[in-house]
């Protein structure tokens, strides 16, 4: 082999543009069809990578523990994120509090690949979300409906995840939010042009984005699902409902055999249309996370209510 430095082919030296919408949204395109797993230490990150996760979310406590322990929940220790970044080669995401643009600046400065402006942490601002256009690092944000998704995209989110109800193992809210978002998209595609103005008003979303969704029949960014997914069948159902991929938070490392469950959820996400493969993936996984019914959680304690 010869060193590439000696190559004589023409070389492109024009200034490169970083942080463009295409580069940020494109990053999420590469994660599609995959599972992103919450991890709290290096060991879990390696299990996730070995199981075929497309990315890990580095955080100090998974949502189920945040829920159980209460208190204010914040951005993770940068050293802990650095350790996970060093241990795996798949992308590493980290969470900032809603509206906490300095936590986001910190996470960008240490080189995380994606920031989740997340309702799982305690919000830092009850009016404003982070102005995500100001960052080169891309953001994913939660949404329970189309209007919320488009407001986040308008603020610069490069990826959306339906919120579900994190830390419960109860998939019902994830289902509700996926159906809501995709149903509202389908409704827009059937509208006359002059009806879209009213639709924009009702969705409380910018007209230009509403018009774009009505024309293309999909969000302008990748749509993952999250919140309560605990089994391979849960993951496959979300894919069949139209998700581009799946976040699994507490569902893996709060279960009996994490490595096996992680690999099974990945398999079910890839082959989401094949019940036989999902059946095989579901065999002998041991104990699933215990879980809480969302209906048993008082409304003020539901995380999906955070963000607006």
């Amino acid at each position: 082999m010869t060193s590439s430095q000696n190559s004589s082919s023409e070389s492109s030296t024009i200034t490169a543009l970083v942080g463009t919408a295409r580069v940020k949204r494109g990053m999420a395109e590469m994660l599609k069809g995959g599972v992103i797993m919450d991890v709290v230490n290096v060991e879990q990150a390696k299990i996730a990578e070995d199981a075929g996760a497309v990315a890990v979310m580095a955080l100090e406590r998974v949502p189920a523990d945040i829920r159980a322990q209460g208190g204010v929940s914040r951005m993770s220790d940068p050293s802990m994120i650095d350790a996970i970044k060093a241990a795996v080669s798949i992308p590493v995401m980290a969470k900032a509090r809603i509206g906490h643009f300095v936590e986001a600046q910190v996470l960008e400065s240490i080189g995380v690949d994606y920031i989740d402006e997340s309702e799982v942490l305690t919000p830092a601002d009850y009016e404003h979300h982070i102005d995500k256009w100001k960052f080169n690092v891309p953001f994913v944000c939660g949404a329970t409906n189309l209007g919320e998704a488009l407001r986040r995209i308008n603020e610069g989110a490069a990826m959306i995840r339906s919120k579900g109800e994190a830390g419960t193992g109860d998939v019902s809210n994830a289902t509700t939010h996926m159906r809501k978002i995709s149903g509202e998209i389908r409704r827009l595609t059937s509208m006359r042009d002059d009806e879209l103005y009213v639709a924009a008003k009702e969705l409380q979303a910018p007209y230009a984005l509403v018009k774009e969704v009505a024309t293309t029949g999909k969000l302008p960014v990748v749509l993952f699902t999250a919140g309560g997914i605990a089994t391979p069948a849960d993951a496959a159902m979300m894919m069949q409902l139209g998700a581009d991929g799946v976040f699994i938070g507490s569902g893996i490392f709060k279960s009996g055999d994490a490595a096996k469950r992680a690999a099974a959820c990945v398999k079910a996400t890839t082959y989401y249309q094949d019940p036989k493969i999902i059946a095989d993936a579901s065999r002998g996984l041991g104990e699933a996370m215990v879980g809480i019914n969302v209906a048993d959680i008082p409304v003020p304690h539901r995380l999906a209510e955070r963000g607006w």
Binding site: S12, I14, A16, T20, V112, Y114
Partner: peptide, 24 residues
Amino acid sequence: IPMLVRRNAFGSQVESFEQDLDIA
């Protein structure tokens, strides 16, 4: 392809970029 590739060669996601290329 008889070659050696370097993964994430340009850095992490914040270094991701677009630019015009001259393609032979």
